[in-house]
Design a protein around this nucleic acid. Sequence first.
DNA 1: AATGAATGAGCCTTCATTCAT
DNA 2: GATGAATGAAGGCTCATTCAT
Lengths: 225, 225, 225, 225
Amino acid sequence: MNTNPEQTSVTNPRRRLLEAAGEAFAERGFRGTTVREICERAGTNIATVNYYFGGKEKLYRSVLQYSLNATMTKYPPELGLTERATARERLQAFVLSLILRLLDEGRPSWHGRLMAREMAEPTSALNGLVDDVIRPLWGQLESIVGELLGRRAEPKEIRLCAQSIIGQCVHYGRAKAVIVRLYPEQRFDSDGLKGLADHIMKFSLGALRQFNREYQRRGRALSRK
Amino acid sequence: MNTNPEQTSVTNPRRRLLEAAGEAFAERGFRGTTVREICERAGTNIATVNYYFGGKEKLYRSVLQYSLNATMTKYPPELGLTERATARERLQAFVLSLILRLLDEGRPSWHGRLMAREMAEPTSALNGLVDDVIRPLWGQLESIVGELLGRRAEPKEIRLCAQSIIGQCVHYGRAKAVIVRLYPEQRFDSDGLKGLADHIMKFSLGALRQFNREYQRRGRALSRK
Amino acid sequence: MNTNPEQTSVTNPRRRLLEAAGEAFAERGFRGTTVREICERAGTNIATVNYYFGGKEKLYRSVLQYSLNATMTKYPPELGLTERATARERLQAFVLSLILRLLDEGRPSWHGRLMAREMAEPTSALNGLVDDVIRPLWGQLESIVGELLGRRAEPKEIRLCAQSIIGQCVHYGRAKAVIVRLYPEQRFDSDGLKGLADHIMKFSLGALRQFNREYQRRGRALSRK
Amino acid sequence: MNTNPEQTSVTNPRRRLLEAAGEAFAERGFRGTTVREICERAGTNIATVNYYFGGKEKLYRSVLQYSLNATMTKYPPELGLTERATARERLQAFVLSLILRLLDEGRPSWHGRLMAREMAEPTSALNGLVDDVIRPLWGQLESIVGELLGRRAEPKEIRLCAQSIIGQCVHYGRAKAVIVRLYPEQRFDSDGLKGLADHIMKFSLGALRQFNREYQRRGRALSRK
DNA sequence: AATGAATGAGCCTTCATTCAT
DNA sequence: GATGAATGAAGGCTCATTCAT
């Protein structure tokens, strides 16, 4: 007798529904996806969505949670760094893990697309997401950026620089559809993503260093007086 | 007899439908919007969508085109610069106009939101968009960035730097829903957007300068041999 | 061009729906009746119920109203009496019209059954009914009974006697299914109903006369003192 | 091992289902009640209805039988009278017991409401009911009425008078929903029901006496010839 | 014997589209 | 040209019933 709620993962209809729904929602959006379609993909009865999740909307929220858990587990923002890693190393890990989370072409390739949709067309499920996931994540990046900018940086500046870095990363998630059309040579496999992360690192570190130079200039000007 | 398709703009049912549909599509997405609702907002008969546009989907494409024409006309990438403006001035104009196009809170505030949706959830209408609008726009930015990086920059580097700049800009369009939740103090009015553009300029110019320094270093190393 | 909302009554889909729904609701109750069945009976499209009435429940309320209007029009409680009719004549008319309303086997035979259901299984539609129809009707009967009992009768007594009369009448409506099983000889055609009304009149007038006798006895006893 | 089908009554799931179902059916009707709800109220598994009764409809029939047995046992038509009670005493007992059966607000208050539904909305279960319960009951009343009217009364007259009495009684069961709305002062507790029974007795005995007077008149007229 | 997870037919409703004016 | 009444396919969901334990 198997009472394990997760069972063998392929047999478990709950799990199969989450996977099928995630893919479908990512492809056609919440309203564009029919319960019938999800059940067919999952190979389950049409009533299972209501039976296991209590309705289409509850399923959607569950899919969002499930997707987040899966990606954050697979690609944690620290990416296996030790506690004593430098700010630069931590930034590198943050950028790469974020890109991988959004664009990993492995099996559950729908996670990134689903999240992109949710942010462009925020449903009420977004509120929970922001508090549970995005806020701590952005806070983490801000502390890294703050460290890199030094103590002279103002909070607002730190925040804006953090957003500049995030913007570069998520851009490839959002605009992938356009980019593959305009630049077919751009790869989105593991190496291609690594290259994108490297560029973003280089670009951002250069920008941050420039901020530092400015602080030094200001500092010197101040001390001269 | 008035055969001018745009007529007096307020009387013209075609135009009223485009405006009403744009607003509705931006708010609730393509599937979340009903033809009835659009016609009610436009004050027209329920059959007008099919009559004037041949269906809901054709209307959607028309709205996209209409929106683009309107925004590109109102905020051209050059923003009124003369032909002999410096690369830096042109970048400034590009960044600001892009942000304004996405986030202008003025009367037709739905243009940016609609475009954000379309990219996160690309319909077949995207293909036309890419060729007509995005390709020339990105090309324009690349030529500016190429000028700023100097002749030593490789095309791939130019492209990536351009994407970094675009990513920062569109980020605020995409993630506005999240940002207003996490940073309620961030304004999205005219001044707020100006501030965002200024930061992006500062961040990006800093990054590009760092690229330049590297080229110089490389160049010196090369000439020493 | 026919703009008359009632049209030719057979052609009018609204009317056909009301008739079909009335019959179906009377036979199987509100929940037991499907919208599909109603539309099939009415020969209309499945969407017409929502189109004309805004939903199944709204249709039900409309049917109730329609039924009441029809029966109260066909069999008004006064049954064509002049203003100067005696109390006894008015009671006769009241009883007969009530029975006819409940048991008329003419074309719209479902009116009585539907009302019986509504009272045994009161839906929220009952509230409106009580105020609009039942209250004035019962008040009318009470004034007749009050007249027959004389000024010595107490309001409570009048009310109870009125209920006794109503109870006798509606009984045949409620228990018809049982009566036809137990007394197959009982006819429910026009003559049969007339006979029932006659009996109820005889029974009730006898009872009321007995009340009168008691008042007189009481009165005499009082005046003797 | 306890094979007694009624067991300890509280433990017995069959019994608990009958009680729960009776209450539910009386409140929401057959179709308005879900098997799930019944099982939840009864504290049993969802499959028990099919397991013990073979389906929802079979359960309904069983509830009807069960209800009848219970009420007829609690309120027998004789109400504890001796064999040698007068016709008047037996009528009094009949009327009161009938009213109590329909309107008793004690613990199993649903019996009366359920029966009222069944008659207004006769299912196929009604046939069995008529033969087993109603026929002997009405026969009993007719013999009482026959005794009170005397040997001159015709069977048809006896029958109609009996129906007049039954109609008055069941009226309060059927129209309770309306009466509480129109006459909020009418109580349906033990005393209130006693008062209703008293009125019905007074009204009916008065009517029957009037029939007697008429027979006497007729008899005299006949003997004069 | 008894359970409860799973089923699938069928429910009401919505909505883009059509067609006869 | 323009209308709006009418359509019917398809949507999410409920619920009595089944079946493997």
